[in-house]
Simulated assay, not measured.
Amino acid sequence: MKIRVLGCSGGIGGHHLRTTSFLVDHDILIDAGTGVGDLSIAELRQIDHVFITHSHLDHVTSLAFIVDAVGDMRDRPLIVHATEATIRILREHIFNWLIWPDFSQTPHNKPFLAYSPIHVAETVTVDSRMITALPAHHTVPAVGYQLDSGSASLVFSGDTGPCPEFWEAVNKIQNLRYLLIECAFPDQEKELAVQSLHLCPSLLMKELAQWQHEAEVFVTHLKPGQIEMTMQELATYSGAYHLRILQGHQVFDL
């Protein structure tokens, strides 16, 4: 299993900042932020599954454009895996004929998109690759994901504030190699982090204290303009944790 970072920023600004999306091998996306826009038409056609963490625009904005760009070139619908609550939001607020066509209903003889509900702790297997929804705590219904090749796992928290249930699930993963964890704000905006159910360096340290295993840790979803400040604060807190910033175009092998 090869995981390519298409985008991992908490916003846009500059040629290198793309919002969250990861390409798993050639046919699976985890989230569909603006990073998807860098894929070619040929690459977009190969995507069969999209696993959505939550409905916020920076994680779903390219979903509408994928089906619009290549839906008529494919012989089967793009399958969107998400919680029932997230699917309801996508139906009501994006694919609603007002913001974008409902491609789960059109074309009538061959819809471009299909929804597949997923529940926390449920595992979806795609050609021996196992993707499990993990608990998260955000302002809208949200999950993280464990990607398991069988020999190693990567965990992506998605957007989350403090969430003991997330760590309870992560602590059960025996083959964890990489942990991608959000840290959206610096500590000077801790109040905003708390209100919006995100993490900042001091909150992240409290979360990591619940972790019982070891893996390589990368922080993601940093806000443009605050990246250097946030990483400086993390460096003062990190102690035993060697925290690195997730980079666009980074590749993980499992």
Rank of each mutant, 00 (worst) to 15 (best):
S128Q: 09
S128M: 03
S128V: 01
T132N: 02
T132Q: 05
A133Y: 00
L134C: 07
L134S: 06
H138R: 00
H138D: 13
T139N: 12
T139K: 11
T139D: 12
V140Q: 14
V140G: 08
V140C: 13
A142Q: 00
A142N: 04
V143R: 00
V143S: 03
G144I: 07
Q146S: 10
L147H: 08
L147P: 13
D148G: 10
D148T: 10
S149F: 04
S149I: 07
S149Y: 02
S149V: 10
S151D: 14
S151F: 04
S151Y: 01
S153Y: 08
S153V: 11
L154H: 08
L154I: 15
L154W: 02
F156V: 14
F156R: 05
S157I: 10
S157M: 09
G158K: 01
D159P: 12
D159Y: 00
D159L: 15
T160Y: 01
P162R: 07
P164E: 11
P164Q: 07
P164D: 14
E165I: 04
W167Q: 06
E168M: 11
A169E: 10
A169S: 14
A169Q: 12
V170L: 14
V170E: 06
N171K: 02
N171F: 07
K172A: 15
I173L: 07
I173M: 06
Q174D: 12
R177V: 05
R177K: 15
Y178N: 14
Y178W: 08
L179H: 00
L179W: 06
L179T: 08
L180F: 06
E182H: 04
E182R: 04
C183T: 08
A184R: 05
A184D: 12
F185Y: 13
F185D: 09
P186Y: 00
Q188G: 13
E189K: 13
E189D: 12
E189S: 11
E189V: 00
E189C: 07
E191M: 08
E191C: 07
V194N: 05
V194M: 09
L197Q: 13
L197N: 12
L199A: 04
L199N: 15
C200T: 07
P201W: 01
P201A: 04
P201L: 05
M205L: 13
K206P: 11
K206C: 14
K206A: 13
E207H: 02
E207T: 04
E207Y: 02
E207V: 01
A209N: 08
Q210K: 10
Q210Y: 03
W211V: 06
Q212G: 03
Q212W: 01
Q212N: 11
Q212V: 06
E214S: 15
E214A: 11
E216Q: 10
V217E: 01
V217D: 02
V219G: 01
V219T: 08
H221K: 12
L222G: 05
P224W: 00
P224D: 02
P224S: 01
E228S: 09
T230S: 06
T230N: 05
E233I: 05
E233P: 06
A235T: 10
A235L: 07
T236P: 02
S238D: 12
G239E: 11
G239S: 11
H242K: 11
I245T: 05
L246D: 05
Q247D: 12
G248R: 01
H249K: 09
H249D: 15
V251W: 00
V251T: 11
V251R: 00
F252L: 08
F252D: 12
D253I: 12
D253K: 03
